[in-house]
């Protein structure tokens, strides 16, 4: 189908983009989620502002003990970046598996977080790594841990006039991995699990288990108390109740959480 009538502007600076968003325009990042929603008329913004012409939103650089990733950096760039592959592997691996090559050429890290799909891979991977976002709006700039960013289905704690400008990835998450299960190569993950083994212990997070990416606290606490991997896997689904649907029952999805946590942990340990 054809999207509803809209007014399109292309911002050439962050200030221009913020002004447009403040005036009510919907930010258009890579468009890999928003455009299909507009075509299906699930979304019908009266105005969109294209962020594709804002140079300060693109790029990856080292900044102290973090890697700063511009919000408009594509999945392809994240997946191929040597810094991220080495120091925050779980995120590079998740980015490499998003959709198809054609989708990774356009889809962006900031767009994935702002869209907040309950089956998105990037939010869970970044949560497992312990990442954060920098957002800017008329109230200035602030930092939000990814765990506090996504609050429900397609819903974030961003204010109406705020944009994600940067994703901050910790450099201490090199020993990490992402494992997911889906039916066809380009399908959304039914369940995906990221595991990071860092100086502060094990962090794990899953997608597909509820309305937002969720830490696997049962799995983490067993391992961080020196327990066995077997016990940790048994506790991986603790506190979770993924909705049963056409992709599988609640029990099946909880089983997947354990299987994928074990896979991601094994791969992270071997790195």
């Amino acid at each position: 189908m054809i999207p509803s009538t809209l007014e399109y502007t292309k911002a050439t600076s962050l200030d221009e983009a913020l002004a447009a968003v403040k005036a009510g325009a919907r930010p258009l990042a890579g468009g890999m989620s928003l455009m299909p929603m507009m075509r299906l008329r699930l979304a019908a913004p009266g105005a969109v502002v294209d962020l594709g012409g804002v140079p300060e939103l693109v790029g990856i650089c080292e900044d102290g003990d973090e890697i700063a990733v511009g919000a408009m950096t594509t999945h392809r760039s994240v997946a191929n970046d040597p810094l991220i592959r080495e120091h925050c592997h779980v995120v590079a691996q998740a980015a490499a598996g998003v959709g198809s090559m054609t989708i990774r050429n356009r889809g962006t890290i900031g767009g994935s977080l702002a869209h907040a799909d309950p089956h998105g891979d990037l939010p869970a991977a970044i949560l497992a790594a312990g990442g954060a976002v920098i957002v800017r709006g008329s109230g200035g700039e602030r930092r939000i841990d990814v765990g506090d960013l996504i609050t429900s289905y397609l819903t974030t704690s961003l204010a109406e006039d705020e944009l994600i400008t940067q994703v901050r990835l910790p450099k201490g998450a090199g020993q990490s991995a992402y494992a997911k299960f889906h039916r066809r190569a380009i399908d959304w993950s039914i369940i995906g699990v990221g595991v990071s083994i860092g100086a502060d212990g094990v962090r794990a997070a899953a997608t597909g288990v509820g309305d937002h990416p969720t830490r696997l606290t049962g799995f983490e606490s067993v391992l961080n108390a020196g327990g066995s991997l077997e016990d940790a896997i048994a506790k991986a689904g603790e506190g979770l109740s993924p909705l049963g649907d056409l992709d599988g029952s609640t029990e099946y999805k909880l089983h997947l959480v354990g299987v994928l946590a074990a896979q991601a942990h094994a791969e992270a340990s071997s790195r």
């Binding site: 189908m1 468009g31 299909p36 075509r39 594709g52 380009i186």
Partner: peptide, 27 residues
């Protein structure tokens, strides 16, 4: 398709593959 799933509309934009159903002509 109408869901960015099938890849039939794939073209190159400045040498990279893109889905022409998921891009506005003005872009």
């Amino acid at each position: 398709c109408d869901t960015s799933t099938c890849g039939c509309c794939t073209v190159h934009l400045d040498g990279e593959t893109v889905l022409s159903c998921s891009l506005l002509a003005v872009q």
